Simulated assay, not measured.
Amino acid sequence: MARQDVLSLPQIPLLTTKGATLLPRSLVEPRQRQALRRSNLNPIFGLLVGSSNDIEGLAAYALYKKHKRAWAEGVRTTGREPTPDEEEGFARAAATPDQLDRYRKDAQDILIAFANEFVSDERASIIQEALTGRAEKAFLQIEGSGSFWALVKVGVTSTLITTGILALLAFGVQLFGLDLVDALSIGSN
């Protein structure tokens, strides 16, 4: 019997590997209904993955697939394949908002654990890079300030300019006959 004749308005088709199953509208939020309609493949993918670069959603979908595979293997240990009704029941249970949130939360925990482990493993090289970068920056700053001989030239030049200004000042005082010591003593009286 084809599953198409069972479809009605209060139902949303949910594709599985064995054909279409039905998910009651009451179990799916409006946002999830749109994802189900958009998804050409497994609607659970549309419910868990927001965009193609949604790593958390992709990990959550992988957890869903792992859960589904473990469930199917559990049924197969009884010596038979899962029936379409059993697959429909699994699909309904997996598509509930609570279960979807659990997949997302577990995916988030796995990604955080992975990131922490990666940072822990790379901590030594991160510290080494940071220290090397700081040392190189300090070296370049010292190097950019000039060589020893360049600094000596600047020092000698500034000393010659200061000496020249003082010589001109002394010559001007001598030329005009000013006695600075007398001028200072008059000002203090």
Results as ranks from 00 to 15, higher is better:
M1E: 14
R3N: 12
V6E: 14
V6T: 10
L7G: 06
P10V: 03
P13N: 06
L14C: 15
T16L: 07
T16H: 01
T17S: 08
T17H: 07
K18H: 01
K18D: 01
T21C: 02
L22G: 05
P24C: 02
R25E: 07
S26H: 02
L27S: 04
E29F: 13
P30A: 02
R31A: 14
R31F: 14
R31K: 10
R33M: 12
Q34S: 14
L36T: 04
N40D: 08
N42P: 09
P43D: 06
I44F: 05
I44A: 00
F45M: 03
S51Y: 01
S51E: 05
S52I: 08
N53I: 00
D54T: 04
D54V: 01
A59I: 08
A60E: 01
A60V: 03
A62C: 08
L63D: 01
K65V: 03
K66N: 09
H67K: 08
K68L: 13
K68T: 05
K68N: 07
R69S: 09
A70Q: 10
A70T: 04
W71F: 02
E73I: 05
V75W: 04
R76N: 00
R80M: 00
E81S: 06
P82S: 06
P82T: 01
P82W: 04
P82K: 00
D85F: 09
D85C: 11
E86L: 00
E86T: 03
E88Q: 03
F90R: 00
A91Q: 10
A94E: 04
D98R: 06
D98W: 05
Q99P: 11
Q99R: 14
L100D: 08
L100Y: 04
L100P: 05
D101I: 01
D101C: 03
K105V: 05
K105E: 05
A107N: 01
A107M: 05
Q108D: 00
Q108E: 06
L111P: 04
I112F: 14
A113S: 04
A113N: 07
F114P: 13
F114L: 15
A115R: 10
A115W: 09
A115Q: 11
F118W: 11
D121C: 07
D121L: 10
E122Y: 03
R123K: 15
R123G: 08
R123N: 14
S125F: 11
Q128S: 13
L131P: 06
T132V: 09
E136C: 06
E136Y: 09
K137V: 08
K137T: 09
A138C: 03
F139E: 11
F139Q: 11
Q141R: 10
E143T: 09
G144Y: 07
S145A: 14
G146P: 12
S147P: 11
F148P: 13
W149F: 10
W149G: 07
A150D: 15
L151G: 13
V154R: 15
V154S: 14
G155C: 14
G155W: 10
S158M: 13
L160V: 15
T163H: 05
T163V: 15
G164N: 15
G164S: 14
I165R: 12
L168H: 13
L169K: 15
A170I: 02
A170D: 07
F171G: 07
F171Q: 12
Q174T: 11
Q174D: 13
L175V: 00
F176M: 13
F176Q: 15
G177Q: 02
G177Y: 00
G177L: 07
L178S: 09
L180A: 11
V181P: 03
A183V: 10
A183C: 15
A183D: 15
L184F: 13
G187R: 03
N189L: 05
